[in-house]
Amino acid sequence: MSTALAQTAHDVGSRALHWLHAHRQAGALDGPDLAGDMKAYTALLETALAASLVLRDGASGGEQCALAHELLDFAWAQLKDGTLLYERLLRQPLATDAVEGYAHFARVGYRHTGMERLITHFAATGTARTVEYVPNRRLAIAIANALRVTGHDQGADDWERLTRATWLGSTPQPWHLDWMTGYAITHTVFHLTDGPTSGQRPASGTWWANC
Protein backbone atom coordinates (compact mmCIF):
# COMPACT_ATOMS: atom_id res chain seq x y z
CA MET A 1 0.00 0.00 0.00
CA SER A 2 1.37 3.40 -0.90
CA THR A 3 2.11 5.88 1.87
CA ALA A 4 -0.64 8.25 0.69
CA LEU A 5 -3.19 5.44 0.58
CA ALA A 6 -2.14 4.20 4.02
CA GLN A 7 -2.56 7.74 5.38
CA THR A 8 -6.05 8.01 3.85
CA ALA A 9 -7.00 4.62 5.29
CA HIS A 10 -5.72 5.70 8.68
CA ASP A 11 -7.63 9.03 8.58
CA VAL A 12 -10.91 7.38 7.56
CA GLY A 13 -10.49 4.70 10.23
CA SER A 14 -9.67 7.28 12.87
CA ARG A 15 -12.68 9.47 12.07
CA ALA A 16 -14.97 6.44 12.08
CA LEU A 17 -13.67 5.32 15.45
CA HIS A 18 -14.19 8.77 16.97
CA TRP A 19 -17.72 8.89 15.58
CA LEU A 20 -18.56 5.46 16.99
CA HIS A 21 -17.16 6.46 20.36
CA ALA A 22 -18.99 9.79 20.48
CA HIS A 23 -22.34 8.19 19.62
CA ARG A 24 -22.00 4.92 21.50
CA GLN A 25 -24.92 5.64 23.85
CA ALA A 26 -27.26 5.70 20.85
CA GLY A 27 -26.48 2.00 20.45
CA ALA A 28 -27.64 1.00 23.92
CA LEU A 29 -30.09 -1.87 24.19
CA ASP A 30 -33.71 -0.93 24.69
CA GLY A 31 -34.91 -3.32 27.39
CA PRO A 32 -33.51 -5.98 29.70
CA ASP A 33 -32.72 -8.56 27.02
CA LEU A 34 -32.05 -8.93 23.29
CA ALA A 35 -35.51 -10.05 22.25
CA GLY A 36 -37.02 -6.61 21.84
CA ASP A 37 -34.09 -4.93 20.13
CA MET A 38 -32.27 -7.18 17.69
CA LYS A 39 -31.13 -4.19 15.64
CA ALA A 40 -29.27 -2.70 18.58
CA TYR A 41 -27.85 -6.16 19.32
CA THR A 42 -26.45 -6.37 15.79
CA ALA A 43 -25.03 -2.85 16.04
CA LEU A 44 -23.32 -3.64 19.34
CA LEU A 45 -21.61 -6.68 17.81
CA GLU A 46 -20.50 -4.68 14.78
CA THR A 47 -19.14 -1.97 17.05
CA ALA A 48 -17.24 -4.61 19.02
CA LEU A 49 -15.88 -6.03 15.77
CA ALA A 50 -14.64 -2.61 14.63
CA ALA A 51 -13.00 -1.92 17.97
CA SER A 52 -11.41 -5.37 18.15
CA LEU A 53 -9.84 -4.80 14.69
CA VAL A 54 -8.26 -1.57 15.91
CA LEU A 55 -6.60 -3.56 18.67
CA ARG A 56 -5.78 -6.54 16.43
CA ASP A 57 -3.86 -4.48 13.91
CA GLY A 58 -1.64 -2.99 16.56
CA ALA A 59 -0.93 -0.08 14.24
CA SER A 60 -3.07 2.44 16.07
CA GLY A 61 -1.82 5.02 18.50
CA GLY A 62 -2.52 5.11 22.22
CA GLU A 63 -5.53 7.37 21.89
CA GLN A 64 -7.21 5.10 19.37
CA CYS A 65 -6.54 2.01 21.45
CA ALA A 66 -8.10 3.76 24.45
CA LEU A 67 -11.21 4.63 22.42
CA ALA A 68 -11.42 1.04 21.17
CA HIS A 69 -11.19 -0.33 24.72
CA GLU A 70 -13.93 2.02 25.88
CA LEU A 71 -16.15 0.95 23.03
CA LEU A 72 -15.59 -2.72 23.88
CA ASP A 73 -16.25 -2.03 27.57
CA PHE A 74 -19.49 -0.30 26.65
CA ALA A 75 -20.70 -3.09 24.37
CA TRP A 76 -19.65 -5.79 26.83
CA ALA A 77 -21.54 -4.03 29.63
CA GLN A 78 -24.61 -3.74 27.41
CA LEU A 79 -24.42 -7.50 26.91
CA LYS A 80 -24.25 -7.89 30.69
CA ASP A 81 -20.64 -9.07 30.55
CA GLY A 82 -21.52 -11.71 27.96
CA THR A 83 -24.52 -13.16 29.78
CA LEU A 84 -26.96 -12.09 27.05
CA LEU A 85 -24.84 -13.88 24.43
CA TYR A 86 -24.75 -16.96 26.66
CA GLU A 87 -28.52 -16.96 27.13
CA ARG A 88 -29.11 -16.56 23.41
CA LEU A 89 -26.87 -19.50 22.50
CA LEU A 90 -28.19 -21.63 25.35
CA ARG A 91 -31.76 -21.24 24.11
CA GLN A 92 -30.96 -21.34 20.41
CA PRO A 93 -27.95 -23.56 19.69
CA LEU A 94 -28.10 -22.69 15.98
CA ALA A 95 -27.95 -18.93 16.62
CA THR A 96 -24.31 -18.74 15.59
CA ASP A 97 -24.34 -14.94 15.70
CA ALA A 98 -23.81 -15.24 19.45
CA VAL A 99 -20.61 -17.25 18.91
CA GLU A 100 -19.45 -14.91 16.16
CA GLY A 101 -20.15 -11.88 18.35
CA TYR A 102 -18.45 -13.43 21.35
CA ALA A 103 -15.27 -13.93 19.29
CA HIS A 104 -14.87 -10.17 18.83
CA PHE A 105 -14.60 -9.81 22.58
CA ALA A 106 -12.72 -13.02 23.31
CA ARG A 107 -9.86 -12.18 20.95
CA VAL A 108 -9.03 -9.11 23.00
CA GLY A 109 -9.41 -10.70 26.43
CA TYR A 110 -13.10 -10.53 27.41
CA ARG A 111 -14.29 -13.95 28.55
CA HIS A 112 -17.50 -15.47 29.89
CA THR A 113 -17.10 -18.85 31.61
CA GLY A 114 -20.53 -20.16 30.71
CA MET A 115 -20.08 -19.11 27.10
CA GLU A 116 -16.73 -20.93 26.89
CA ARG A 117 -18.31 -24.14 28.14
CA LEU A 118 -21.24 -23.77 25.79
CA ILE A 119 -19.01 -23.22 22.75
CA THR A 120 -16.93 -26.30 23.62
CA HIS A 121 -20.14 -28.30 23.64
CA PHE A 122 -21.35 -26.58 20.48
CA ALA A 123 -18.11 -27.57 18.67
CA ALA A 124 -18.11 -31.14 20.04
CA THR A 125 -21.62 -31.86 18.80
CA GLY A 126 -20.57 -30.89 15.25
CA THR A 127 -23.33 -28.30 15.13
CA ALA A 128 -20.97 -25.44 14.33
CA ARG A 129 -19.61 -27.19 11.29
CA THR A 130 -22.94 -28.23 9.87
CA VAL A 131 -25.30 -25.30 10.27
CA GLU A 132 -26.83 -24.84 6.82
CA TYR A 133 -25.29 -21.53 5.94
CA VAL A 134 -23.80 -20.15 2.73
CA PRO A 135 -20.06 -20.84 2.46
CA ASN A 136 -18.75 -17.37 3.36
CA ARG A 137 -20.79 -17.44 6.57
CA ARG A 138 -19.40 -20.86 7.37
CA LEU A 139 -15.95 -19.36 7.03
CA ALA A 140 -16.95 -16.71 9.57
CA ILE A 141 -18.09 -19.25 12.11
CA ALA A 142 -15.61 -22.04 11.73
CA ILE A 143 -12.27 -20.63 10.84
CA ALA A 144 -11.49 -17.00 10.51
CA ASN A 145 -13.60 -16.06 13.40
CA ALA A 146 -15.48 -17.71 16.14
CA LEU A 147 -14.17 -21.22 16.63
CA ARG A 148 -10.57 -20.32 15.91
CA VAL A 149 -10.54 -17.45 18.37
CA THR A 150 -12.05 -19.68 21.02
CA GLY A 151 -9.68 -22.55 20.21
CA HIS A 152 -12.08 -24.98 18.50
CA ASP A 153 -11.20 -24.82 14.84
CA GLN A 154 -9.90 -27.81 12.90
CA GLY A 155 -6.85 -26.31 11.28
CA ALA A 156 -5.61 -25.47 7.83
CA ASP A 157 -7.37 -28.32 6.01
CA ASP A 158 -10.69 -26.95 7.11
CA TRP A 159 -9.67 -23.48 6.03
CA GLU A 160 -8.81 -24.79 2.53
CA ARG A 161 -12.03 -26.74 2.21
CA LEU A 162 -14.21 -23.86 3.34
CA THR A 163 -12.40 -21.37 1.12
CA ARG A 164 -12.88 -23.54 -1.95
CA ALA A 165 -16.61 -23.67 -1.27
CA THR A 166 -16.99 -19.89 -1.62
CA TRP A 167 -17.50 -18.07 -4.92
CA LEU A 168 -14.14 -16.37 -4.51
CA GLY A 169 -12.42 -19.65 -3.75
CA SER A 170 -13.63 -21.40 -6.89
CA THR A 171 -14.11 -18.41 -9.24
CA PRO A 172 -16.60 -19.76 -11.78
CA GLN A 173 -17.17 -17.80 -15.01
CA PRO A 174 -17.85 -14.33 -13.64
CA TRP A 175 -20.78 -13.03 -15.63
CA HIS A 176 -23.57 -14.51 -13.51
CA LEU A 177 -22.38 -12.66 -10.42
CA ASP A 178 -25.23 -10.85 -8.67
CA TRP A 179 -25.45 -8.24 -5.97
CA MET A 180 -25.77 -10.67 -3.07
CA THR A 181 -22.83 -12.74 -4.30
CA GLY A 182 -20.76 -9.58 -4.63
CA TYR A 183 -21.66 -8.80 -1.03
CA ALA A 184 -20.71 -12.35 -0.05
CA ILE A 185 -17.32 -11.88 -1.72
CA THR A 186 -16.58 -8.84 0.43
CA HIS A 187 -17.28 -10.99 3.48
CA THR A 188 -15.11 -13.82 2.18
CA VAL A 189 -12.25 -11.36 1.74
CA PHE A 190 -12.79 -10.05 5.23
CA HIS A 191 -12.80 -13.49 6.84
CA LEU A 192 -9.79 -14.69 4.87
CA THR A 193 -7.76 -11.62 5.77
CA ASP A 194 -8.87 -11.98 9.40
CA GLY A 195 -7.92 -15.67 9.46
CA PRO A 196 -4.85 -17.65 10.49
CA THR A 197 -3.36 -17.61 7.00
CA SER A 198 -4.25 -14.07 6.12
CA GLY A 199 -1.24 -13.74 3.82
CA GLN A 200 -2.72 -16.30 1.42
CA ARG A 201 -5.20 -15.60 -1.30
CA PRO A 202 -7.36 -17.94 -3.35
CA ALA A 203 -5.27 -19.20 -6.25
CA SER A 204 -7.63 -18.23 -9.05
CA GLY A 205 -7.49 -14.83 -10.70
CA THR A 206 -9.84 -12.02 -9.86
CA TRP A 207 -9.43 -10.01 -13.05
CA TRP A 208 -13.20 -9.47 -13.11
CA ALA A 209 -13.27 -7.77 -9.70
CA ASN A 210 -14.24 -4.26 -10.85
CA CYS A 211 -16.40 -5.14 -13.83
Binding site: P174, W175, L177, W207, W208, C211
Partner: peptide, 13 residues
Protein backbone atom coordinates in the same frame (compact mmCIF):
# COMPACT_ATOMS: atom_id res chain seq x y z
CA UNK B 1 -7.11 -9.77 -24.10
CA UNK B 2 -7.84 -9.26 -20.41
CA UNK B 3 -9.53 -5.91 -21.05
CA UNK B 4 -11.76 -7.59 -23.63
CA UNK B 5 -12.67 -10.32 -21.11
CA UNK B 6 -13.55 -7.59 -18.64
CA UNK B 7 -15.55 -5.65 -21.22
CA UNK B 8 -17.61 -8.69 -22.19
CA UNK B 9 -18.20 -9.58 -18.54
CA UNK B 10 -19.19 -6.02 -17.69
CA UNK B 11 -21.75 -5.92 -20.51
CA UNK B 12 -23.20 -9.30 -19.54
CA UNK B 13 -23.51 -8.27 -15.90
Amino acid sequence: AEALARGATRSLL
